[in-house]
């Protein structure tokens, strides 16, 4: 299992790009952190989620 934004998913083996495409997320609008390390955008195609990973996918929202 890969925990993404707090939810268990079966995305182990998928690249970041594949995950974003599957969920309809625009890669330009997000930042991705795996096990508290940021994944640079240039590595989205080559970085593969592994079983046990904890991933955060974030974007900007309105705020003060």
């Amino acid at each position: 299992m890969v925990k993404i934004n707090g939810a268990d998913t079966d995305m182990a083996g998928k690249t970041v790009s594949e995950y974003l495409a599957l969920t309809g997320c625009n890669p330009k609008l997000v930042a991705v952190e795996r096990n508290e390390e940021i994944i640079p955008k240039a590595q989205y195609d080559t970085t593969v989620f592994e079983d046990g990973d904890t991933v955060e996918v974030v974007s900007f929202v309105g705020g003060g």
């Binding site: 934004n5 707090g6 969920t23 309809g24 997320c25 609008l29 997000v30 930042a31 955060e56 996918v57 974030v58 974007s59 900007f60 929202v61 309105g62 705020g63 003060g64």
Partner: peptide
């Protein structure tokens, strides 16, 4: 702006 988990 604020940073939050992305809504896919």
């Amino acid at each position: 702006l604020a940073v939050r988990r992305a809504n896919t």
